[in-house]
Simulated assay, not measured.
Amino acid sequence: MNNASGEGSSAAGCFGLVITAVVFFLLTSLCIPSMRNDVFGGLFGCKAHRTSSKPEPLKFEDSAAVAYVQEKVLKELKAPSTAEFVGVAKVTRPTGSGIEKAARTLNIDPDHLWMVTGEVDAQNSFGAMLRNSYAGLVEFYPDKGYRVINVIIE
């Protein structure tokens, strides 16, 4: 059913070229690390470029520990929307035999504990603005991240 101008074969040739280009793009994008999605990486034997599935270990950062403790403090307040953290929170290593004994009782390595202390202004249940001190105990492991063990607000 070709006509004299050859439009049928031209369209088929164009379609074949498009299909070839799409297949080529898919195969190369799966093999090139900067272009591939890790879900499909190595699908066509391109395993030499596959990245490790193990995440990079985290490094302890004071600001992250403070953020996690302050988030927990907000959950404990009567009026968290009125809260304003005062000054700069202090991050230290808890010390003493009491901390070590408590940590061992809870199956926590005391070398992975950090203490965050600070102050927060917030309304109480009567609407009065009060300044409270807080202390939070944070556990940190490079492969697991942060976990707030306890927060005390006074």
Rank of each mutant, 00 (worst) to 15 (best):
K90H: 06
I32C: 03
I108T: 08
V116L: 09
A128Q: 15
L27D: 05
H49G: 15
L137W: 02
V120M: 01
I32T: 14
V88E: 15
P80D: 03
L137F: 03
A135H: 02
Q123E: 15
V23R: 00
E61Y: 07
D111E: 14
Q70I: 13
G16P: 04
T117Y: 09
P94Q: 06
G13W: 02
C14M: 06
N107L: 14
E139T: 00
N2I: 02
F85H: 05
K75V: 10
V66C: 07
K101E: 14
F126P: 02
G16A: 13
G118E: 01
P33M: 00
P94V: 04
A103L: 08
F40T: 12
E61M: 11
H49L: 05
V120C: 01
Y141M: 09
L74I: 03
S133R: 09
S29E: 11
E84L: 03
V138I: 03
F140P: 11
V151I: 09
F140A: 08
K59E: 15
A79P: 12
W114E: 10
M115T: 11
S63C: 01
R50N: 10
V116F: 13
D121Q: 06
L27Q: 09
A135I: 05
E154S: 12
F15V: 09
T28E: 04
E154N: 10
V22E: 10
D111C: 00
G41S: 13
F126T: 10
A89I: 10
F25Q: 07
A11K: 15
V151G: 10
D143L: 10
V69W: 13
T51A: 14
M129N: 07
F44Q: 08
Y146P: 00
E7F: 04
G8E: 15
E7G: 01
P110K: 14
D121G: 00
V23C: 07
L17D: 06
T28P: 00
T82W: 12
P94N: 05
N37Y: 05
D38H: 07
M1C: 04
N150G: 01
D38N: 10
E139Y: 06
A103N: 06
V148Q: 03
M129F: 03
G8L: 13
S133A: 11
D38I: 07
A67L: 09
S133W: 05
T117G: 04
K59F: 13
T20C: 14
L30E: 11
P57A: 12
R147P: 00
S10Q: 09
G13H: 02
E154V: 01
E100K: 02
E56Y: 13
F44E: 09
A67F: 10
R50P: 02
F40Q: 04
D121C: 00
A122I: 02
L77S: 12
G6W: 01
A135R: 10
A135F: 01
G96F: 01
T28Y: 02
G41D: 09
F24D: 05
A122V: 00
L43S: 08
L27R: 04
A65K: 09
E71Y: 08
K54N: 12
I149Q: 05
G42E: 14
V73G: 04
T117D: 11
S125Y: 11
S9K: 11
V22I: 15
I149P: 01
P33Y: 00
L30K: 06
I32P: 01
Y134M: 13
